[in-house]
Design a protein around this nucleic acid. Structure first.
Lengths: 155, 155
DNA sequence: TATTGTTATACTCTATAACTATA
DNA sequence: TATAGTTATAGAGTATAACAATA
């Protein structure tokens, strides 16, 4: 019966999965980037948007935490933050408890930016995904839920 | 009954899907990049590897076709190719049928590189995906198959 | 005249190394 | 002495604009 089953519905080995993910994920990523770039009103790169989203969700994020989450080195993160502070999207201040640390917060302009950018990317993505049937969308949801913990940074 | 069903198993709207994809895909991408970077023997960026893979599969790829597939502008693509030619991974020659066009081919070193890089990234990805159950892997396969055509470049 | 590709130029992203300040 | 972050510097990646060659 096991044999029969695997003959009908090819069993998904980890290698099969890996191949598929490596084929499809970069293409999706590229579409996200392109969509973000098209939206002239937004002007945020994917890492910048991820950083703002993280700061938005976390209370009093430090630079190290952010760098860990985004997957950048500390100097690279620091430099990105330079730009976002200059553009008035976030504030960078000293942590009074430990003055080595930095506390990052969104400004209201930053919150507005992140919301616009998220809405735009989500709308563009939703438009594509709307072509799928209900069952396929369910599979996407299940797949993303399954994959998320495998690629988690920062608990 | 529709109500009951959606109460038990929340219906996946396109917006839900979009949110999930936008949350998870960048994290996966980052892991791919990091994995590639760690492999000191490889030294290829994700776009470079995609380019080499495309050249590998297509016979006599032109620059425009490649740029379209990778999602880069022609000048950017040309510059990337400069580097890959310099490193001896591909050859760039004139198309005798239409001398405006360029024909790109892998060298044997290039084929070796692409195979090593693919094996390495696939192994790293497979290792992660191996933590999933059979059903989850099936969902991943189904999701990727469903998403692929939505993000296809170049028919 | 349209198509294919290259050159010139500039800006963003990211890294490593060396440094400063606080704990 | 260890940790958090910044500055200095350099290299890769990408874009737009202007150009050259071929069809």
């Amino acid at each position: 019966m096991k044999l029969l089953e695997s003959a009908i519905k090819t069993e998904a080995t980890p290698e099969d999965c890996a191949r598929e993910v490596l084929d499809v994920v970069p293409a999706i990523m590229q579409a996200i980037r392109a969509g973000l770039r098209e939206h002239r009103s937004v002007d945020l790169s994917v890492p910048q948007l991820r950083a703002l989203s993280f700061i938005d969700l976390s209370t009093a994020a430090s630079l190290s935490e952010l760098a860990e989450h985004i997957g950048l080195t500390l100097p690279s993160m620091s430099k990105m933050i330079d730009g976002l502070v200059e553009r008035g999207l976030i504030t960078r201040s000293e942590d009074p408890q430990d003055r080595r640390r930095v506390v990052l917060c969104l400004t209201s302009a930053g919150r507005e930016s992140v919301e616009m950018a998220q809405a735009a990317t989500r709308a563009a993505m939703a438009e594509r995904v709307a072509h799928l049937g209900q069952e396929q969308r369910a599979a996407v949801m299940e797949a993303m839920d399954a994959l998320r913990p495998l690629f988690r940074r920062q608990g």
